[in-house]
Simulated assay, not measured.
Amino acid sequence: MIIDIERADAEQTAYWIIFSGDRIVAKKQQQALLKSSWRYLRFIHHYSDQVVHIGELDDAPCYSVDLGLEALPEDEYETVSLRSLFMSQNESVFSTVARAWQLILFRRTHRYCGKCGSAMQQVDWEMAMHCHSCHHRCYPRVSPCIIVSIRKGDKILLAQGKAQRERKMFSTLAGFVESGESLEQAVHREVFEEVGIKIKNLQYFSSQPWPFPHSLMMGFLAEHDEGDIEVDGHEILEAHWYDVNALPIVPPSMSIAGKLIDHTIQEIKGHK
């Protein structure tokens, strides 16, 4: 919720997730969340109306602040990308930052009513934007996505999309759920569209919010049924069956893709 930070305890130590554009403000050479009191963060004092309380982290309050596109005036700070911060932090920090970014993005994209065009205001008691002209109310968008790890005997299927090419990374298959589609239907469709195979023994694994930009990843495990790999050449550039002892660069274990890969590796090794 939005708070009146100037009336709050200015000396209380809190975590501050401060966004400049789509990057997070951090002290130079640290790549960690700022932990300070409001009193010492003078460069954000004129953004007091942009402070949103997003919960607790390590028993300390956590706030997000949106600087818009304004550059930092302080020499001791720099900005870091969301992905680099995620890769260097633990899971609790990951989930807190993910929530903060999705709320910031929601507020940026819902300043005006999509129904009548009037200015919208944030509701005090819940995360929603409300239009007082036509009473239209909006809530943060959540886009359901499936992600699946597929095994074939003692091998795992890993693919590389355009976004992963520069990082030389391979990962599990994933895609958005379409309207009128169940999660299971989405898995079968995406797998066939992207690599041309059919799967069986589909099992739910777990889920994870993913802030790029507002996805909810729902993970599955599956086995190869029939067909040979044939990539679409658009979303997927290449895909192969990999021996678990000779894997390419894969996502970190903190991500659901990494967890799916780790689980599949353990399943394969347990059956050898």
Rank of each mutant, 00 (worst) to 15 (best):
Q203G: 03
A32H: 08
V65E: 02
A257V: 02
H53N: 11
E193C: 11
A186P: 04
V80L: 11
F43L: 08
V80H: 08
I5M: 13
N201T: 12
H46D: 14
R42F: 11
V25E: 01
D58K: 14
H188Q: 13
A98E: 08
L260G: 10
K259S: 11
H130P: 03
I256E: 08
Q160I: 08
K115P: 05
D22H: 04
I265W: 00
L41I: 09
I3D: 01
E267L: 14
F106G: 09
V195A: 02
A71Q: 14
E223D: 11
D66Y: 04
M218W: 05
Y77L: 06
L173A: 03
R151E: 12
V51F: 10
G161P: 06
L57G: 00
I18G: 00
G227I: 07
L41D: 01
Q122P: 15
H234S: 15
S81D: 09
D9H: 12
G114Y: 14
P140I: 00
E11P: 06
D243L: 06
A128S: 09
A10I: 14
Q29F: 15
M169N: 06
H234Y: 09
L82P: 05
V123P: 13
K155R: 14
E91P: 06
H45L: 03
T172H: 00
V250E: 05
F176M: 15
A14T: 02
A186D: 05
L158P: 02
Y204I: 02
I3Y: 01
L72A: 05
L157T: 02
R107P: 07
F43M: 10
I236F: 00
H110D: 04
A222Q: 01
H188G: 03
